Structures are given as structure tokens and as C-alpha cells.
Simulated assay, not measured.
Amino acid sequence: MTVDYTLSTIGKQYTAAHRIYVDAEKKIVNMIVEIPRWSNAKFEIATGEKYNPIKQDVKKGKVRFVRNCFPYKGYIWNYGALPQTWEDPTVITPDTNARGDNDPIDVCEIGEEIAYRGQIKQVKILGVMALLDEGETDWKLIAIDIKDPMSEKLNDIEDVEKYFPELIKATHHWFKIYKIPDGKPANKFAFNGECKNKSYAEAVVEETHEAWKRLITGIIPFKADTHDICVSNVTIENSPYNTVKESHKQNKTEKLLNKYKRRVLIEEKDDKWYYVKAHL
């Protein structure tokens, strides 16, 4: 994670009244896009596979697609996850009274761009909802791409309500109903479905990042238990699961990946949302 900040000054330089204020409120994190907005295919980071690739979820032997629940078309934001976070299933969150769901923390990115699968977006955190998925805490961050034209105006959850009217309400409704067409009950939430503010959300991110550090360095209860997560990596030097030293030869998978590497070209389309306030 990186930190974006600004400096504000008052008073004449080199006088007793001179002050420099550091504003580090604009915290920036990297998001991995799993599902572009308006699409239905349920892709996710495969935490149980080596190096955690993105793959389509499979249920009962079939790849999974989320249903269109009127008036929504697929996912209503760019949906993805924060790397280097982990919702620890051994820890009960006091505010939700539920354990973590054993996944990276989820992100709903609300900017106007239609992302592509595997894209890395730098986003600004604005708030968070707590979905209770089958009795587990499943955090849903609300964030916006820092390059989005609206990014400067959005600094906390009340700004989303102001500039993107009804989006938070629609987000709650979407998560509540999206599994119903598949015969499951409506989802439940902590905090009566309220979206907590930026400060709360950043505390959740920090907590899940610390949990990830315990996992990747082996500092967790029952050290051999990685909770079905493949923790093999090539970048974390102090991790006992770092595989760089194992071999300097490319395996078949790596050779295949290099063979099919390609540049991603995105056509420019007018797929952005238009937020209209009706005057009754």
C-alpha cells in the first residue's frame, strides 16, 4: 500500500507564524479487478492455486454466472479485491460477531471507466459494508479510481451519497438479492446494512493487511495451517513460502504464460453512468 498526501502552509516562510500541515487522508491502495462492471461471469482470485491466478468460479461442475436482477445488469461496479489482505477465519470481529471469510477483502470501484479483468487500479477508499455471508464477515469496500474525473470530489461516504445519489442504496439492495434467483435466501448485513465511513473502512483494511502478514510469514496459530490458501510467492523475502530459491528454471506453466502474453487493447465506449437528480 502507498500513501498519497498534500501539504498546506499558512503564514510567511521563516516567521514564527509559519506552519506546514500534512494531509495524509487520501490513502491509495492497489485493487485487482476480477469482474468488470455490467458483466455477469463470476471470476475471482483462486486462493487455493499456486500464485493465485484469477479464474471463473465453478459450482456443481459448471462455471458460474451471476443472474441479472432487475433493474441491474450484472455487477453494478468494477468488482475485485485488495492484494495482501486476508479476512482471518480464526478471528471473530467484535462489531459483526462473525469470523472472516478466508478471502482477500472485496472492493466495489464506482468510477466511470469499464475496467478489464486483471487490471490493477489505484483506488481511494471511501467506505465499507459488512455482508454476513453464511455466518462469515465479508467486507465490501466502496472505492474510486484515483484517475476518475470525480475522484477529487469524493473523500468519504457522504460524498458518494451527494454526487452518486442512490448508489449506496442500490449497492445494499444488489448484495441483498443477487443470490435469490439461485434459490438462496436474501443476504444479511451487519450494522443494519449501513455503509460505514472512510475512517472505519481504512481500519478494516489495516486489520486485514496485518492478518495477511501473519499468514504469509507463517505467524498464525497452528503454523502449518494456511486454511487451504496457497501461499507460494516470489516477492515476499521474509516468507517461508517464497519459491524463488527453489529453482531458476521456468516450469511448463510459466513457459505457456510467456507464450500467450498479450497487450490488452480497450475500445473507448460511452459506458459510463449518468447520475440524474430529478426535481419533483
Rank of each mutant, 00 (worst) to 15 (best):
R99S: 13
N102G: 11
T137R: 08
D159Y: 02
A186T: 05
K188W: 00
C108S: 10
E206R: 13
K153L: 00
K73V: 01
W77Y: 08
N251W: 05
T171P: 00
E202L: 15
D271P: 08
I110A: 07
N251K: 07
N233G: 06
N102S: 15
K249R: 08
E237V: 04
W174C: 01
I114P: 00
L257W: 11
V160L: 10
N242W: 05
P149C: 05
D95T: 08
G111P: 02
L257H: 10
N78C: 09
A46L: 09
E25K: 14
Q119W: 09
V234G: 07
D156G: 03
E87D: 12
K184P: 00
V160W: 06
N78K: 09
Y275V: 03
N258M: 07
I142C: 03
V276W: 13
S39D: 05
V107R: 09
H172W: 07
T15N: 08
S239D: 03
L82Y: 12
V3S: 10
H279I: 14
V205D: 04
G74N: 13
K249P: 00
N78Q: 06
Q250G: 00
V63D: 07
S151C: 06
L82S: 03
A211D: 11
S232F: 11
T47N: 09
N197V: 04
K176H: 01
V123N: 13
I20D: 04
K277C: 07
T85H: 12
K179M: 01
E44N: 13
I114R: 12
K188L: 01
K62S: 04
K277T: 14
I76V: 10
A41I: 07
L215W: 04
P83N: 06
L256T: 02
R263T: 09
